[in-house]
């Protein structure tokens, strides 16, 4: 089987397996599986409002997925997308509430702030890896918690006077789109989807077309050979994390400037950054794959909200079904990994 075929087939099989086991679980627990899936579908596409909400949810998923995928393609495992997203969110909101500028400056500045914050947050593990060989997984996991607590403190002290949330951002910094809102019966769909799509194109372009992408991928595959070939391995590792963090920070801007328009103290993670890992895996770490996988995840996430309402299926069961799909996606990745290892052995 060619690797292209495999990349397309494996995720599809994984999703089907998830649906199959989900069906069995619904039937075993005494619920009507057909009605359940119908509710899921209707909850995502049965109404233009829902579809708008799906797009809204897909937007940060694309960016979080790109962040994970970009790092992965260059040999790094960025578990810290969640933390980078959170700092991006808060940075965007901070610019959104503290400046008084015309929209053509304010909005780009707020988006840029999120990108820079995410990039800086990812620079830390990149630098530590390049300089001291500290494994990025450990550092990024720790930085997720650090981000959560630091931003909570920031929200309490700088963005408000000891309150739970910031003020709403100025309309000049908002990604809100009256046009889309009108189109989708006042869903929260916003302009951010274009930023996400453009970023997907940028990722593809950097990796496949640019000289820098050639280096980044080479370093990811074989550091020794890259060093031998005169590439600056350390610089490339840092750059890879920084680009990845930029995407993650932008994902935060989608929430801060688009969906919510403010930021609030969080008791826990948003989960979007972690879902980004599943999105990237399902999308085989390619730009187009990530977009498609994000659409699937966004639809599931939004559609699932309708399952308790329309089919009486409890929320917990819905979570289980979604988790199952992620599980099969992740294990299909493991299967692929095994296939590759075995054929590597053979090819040597």
């Amino acid at each position: 089987m060619s690797s292209r075929m495999r990349n397309i087939l494996i995720p599809i099989i994984a999703v089907l397996l998830g649906v199959l086991v989900g069906t069995i679980i619904m039937i075993v627990s005494g619920y009507d599986a057909v009605a359940g899936f119908q509710a899921l579908w209707n909850g995502a596409f049965g109404d233009i409002y829902f579809t708008g909400e799906v797009v809204r949810q897909v937007t940060p998923y694309i960016l979080a997925g790109l962040a994970v995928a970009f790092a992965f393609r260059t040999g790094l495992f960025n578990i810290g997308v969640e933390g980078q997203l959170i700092v991006g969110w808060v940075a965007a909101v901070w610019v959104g509430v503290s400046f008084d500028l015309p929209k053509i400056f304010h909005l780009p500045l707020a988006v840029l702030a999120a990108a820079v914050a995410g990039a800086l947050w990812a620079f830390i593990p990149g630098y530590l890896k390049a300089k001291f060989r500290v494994h990025e997984v450990i550092v990024t996991i720790m930085l997720n918690y650090t981000a959560l607590h630091i931003t909570n403190h920031f929200i309490r002290t700088v963005l408000s006077d000891g309150k739970e949330r910031s003020e709403n951002i100025a309309t000049t910094a908002s990604l809100r789109s009256p046009f889309f809102e009108g189109l989708t019966e006042y869903s929260r769909m916003h302009w951010g989807i274009f930023i996400a799509i453009i970023c997907a194109i940028i990722m593809w372009f950097i990796l496949e077309k640019t000289t820098r992408g050639f280096e980044l991928r080479a370093v990811g595959f074989n550091e020794h050979a890259s060093q031998y070939a005169g590439m600056n391995v350390k610089q490339n590792i840092i750059l890879s994390m920084v680009i990845s963090g930029t995407f993650a920070g932008l994902a935060g801007a989608m929430e801060g400037l688009g969906t919510f328009g403010y930021t609030a103290i969080k008791g826990g993670f948003t989960g979007v950054g972690f879902d980004g890992i599943a999105v990237a895996l399902l999308g085989a770490n390619t730009a187009i794959g990530v977009v498609l996988a994000a659409i699937l995840f966004g639809s599931l996430k939004v559609g699932a909200l309708n399952m308790p309402l329309e089919a009486g299926i409890p929320n917990e069961l819905v979570d289980i079904i979604i988790a199952l799909i992620i599980f099969f996606v992740a294990s299909s990745y493991i299967i692929r990994w095994f296939i590759d290892r075995i054929s590597k052995k053979g090819a040597k």
């Binding site: 991928r217 080479a218 595959f221 074989n222 020794h224 050979a225 890259s226 031998y228």
Partner: peptide
């Protein structure tokens, strides 16, 4: 280079 897999080639390229 002496070690073609380590230094000489990016095998996945």
């Amino acid at each position: 280079p002496q070690d073609r897999h380590k230094h000489g080639l990016v095998l996945n390229y």
